[in-house]
Amino acid sequence: MEKLTNQRCVPCEGGIPPMTKEEAEEYLSQVPSWRIVDDEGILKLNKTFKFNNFRESWQFFDRIAELAESEGHHPDISVHYNRVIVTLFTYAIKGLFLNDFIMAAKIEEILKELQKGHR
């Protein structure tokens, strides 16, 4: 399995089935701090990130927004003072697709970069 951070998101126009939970769990091994949630029958990836303050949370949000634009794949993001909640799934197929895992892996890379900068 190719490393997720080496891949790019590809447009998903629908017409294909979403990943099964079993398929999604195979990719989850590359982003183990994320969790698969079942939201009324739609599988999604979810993670809450914690920061020291609002500025750090917002800086992280900004970087995710830049990534989302460059990849053409946009997560649901909530910012709450020192927490950022990110939910990924593919709207066109109402479930998980490879793009969601690519984004999760790249978001983890952003976190690592920001943590290096705050030391």
Rank of each mutant, 00 (worst) to 15 (best):
T48C: 14
L45V: 09
G95T: 07
D76C: 01
R35H: 02
S57N: 05
E40Q: 14
F49N: 13
E23Y: 07
R8K: 15
G95I: 10
I16C: 00
I16W: 01
E66L: 14
K21A: 04
M103G: 01
I93W: 05
L28E: 03
H80C: 13
Q7E: 11
Y81D: 06
G41Y: 08
M103K: 01
K47D: 12
N46F: 05
K116F: 11
R8W: 12
E2A: 02
E22F: 01
L96E: 06
P17G: 13
K47C: 09
P17M: 15
N82T: 08
A92H: 08
H118G: 08
H74L: 14
I93L: 07
F49E: 12
N82I: 03
D39A: 11
L111N: 09
I102G: 08
K112P: 06
K50E: 14
F49H: 14
V79T: 07
L4N: 07
S70C: 04
I16M: 04
F60W: 09
F61N: 01
K112S: 14
V86C: 08
Y27P: 00
A104G: 14
K112Y: 11
F101S: 02
A68K: 01
V86T: 03
R55Q: 14
K44N: 02
E26W: 03
N82V: 00
L96Q: 02
T90Y: 05
R83T: 12
W34S: 11
I77Y: 12
N52R: 10
E23G: 04
K106S: 09
A92S: 14
Y91M: 00
R8H: 15
E69W: 12
G72N: 06
F60N: 05
F51I: 10
K3P: 00
V86Y: 06
L4S: 04
R8V: 13
C9E: 11
S57C: 09
E13W: 10
I93F: 03
M103C: 05
F60S: 02
V79W: 11
D76W: 02
A24D: 13
N6Y: 09
E22V: 09
N99P: 05
I64C: 06
P17W: 06
Q30R: 04
L67C: 02
P11Q: 12
N6E: 15
V31Q: 05
V84A: 01
A105C: 04
T87K: 12
I85Q: 13
T48F: 10
I77T: 11
F54C: 05
S78Q: 12
S57G: 07
R83I: 01
E22M: 01
A105T: 01
